[in-house]
Design a protein around this nucleic acid. Structure first.
Lengths: 123, 123
DNA sequence: TCGAACCCTCACATCGATGTGAAGGTCTAC
DNA sequence: GTAGACCTTCACATCGATGTGAGGGTTCGA
């Protein structure tokens, strides 16, 4: 598919799709006319990237964790250098902490909303 | 305490503490000499703010959810306008989605690391 | 064949979070 | 009373993610 369709299906500006490609987060084939050509799995990948960006990860890190996310393990382990492993472990822990923080604060918001509802129903 | 101590105890640049204040995320008293004066709970608040920033929330939103986080409900509910409630509900859901995304990807990383370990031990 | 709707690259602008430094006031210890 | 370590404000710089537009090629249908 071309960039317009991908943009529409992922809710992502064309500009950003080109940016993600530049950052090595997605890859695009090229038609004979120079147009980018995306395959179907790219749709999910873009959505994944956007989720991670939204959760505060920089493209640099996202690029590093993407190989972990391929469903059938396509990346072979000799590629996994010790530094890479360390990065992934650190990032895994960092994501845990982030999620924990989000859930904790989300629960506080939910609790607050409950209190507001209770107050309102007691007017 | 003064800004230097708060900076050290929270691992946050002074510059940022002033920025957070400017954004209404923390408040600081002032000594007779113009120096900022922070109370003890500010330490936790700064840590909280940093966690949320790191999880991808903008200061604008953080400012809105902070009232929910005061342990004894100090904010009274008439302050909670319908728009405010809607914002909080939306943000609560957004945080759920973010956390879900983080955990999903974290698990994928963990799984990948497990696979690498298994591979290594089978050399 | 012309116009609309795509696509391309390039480049500059913006926005939020952060870094950095200048110019100057205050406090403390020697 | 002076040096050093604090603090103040102000302003400009950087960095990553994103917006926007210029200038130009391609495709397709009327």
């Amino acid at each position: 598919m071309r960039i317009g369709e991908l943009a529409e299906r992922t809710g992502t500006a064309r500009r950003l799709l080109r940016y993600y490609e530049e950052q090595g987060l997605i890859i695009a084939g090229r038609g004979p006319n120079g147009y980018r050509d995306y395959d179907e799995p790219t749709v999910d990948r873009v959505i994944q990237v956007r989720g991670l960006l939204d959760a505060g990860l920089p493209t640099r890190i996202i690029k590093q964790i993407l190989p972990c996310l391929d469903k059938p393990r396509t990346i072979y382990f000799p590629d996994a250098t010790p530094e890479m492993i360390a990065t992934l472990e650190a990032e895994r822990d960092r994501m845990s902490r982030r999620a924990e923080c989000l859930l904790r604060n989300r629960d506080a918001i939910a609790e607050y909303l409950d209190a507001v509802r209770e107050y309102d129903s007691a007017v």
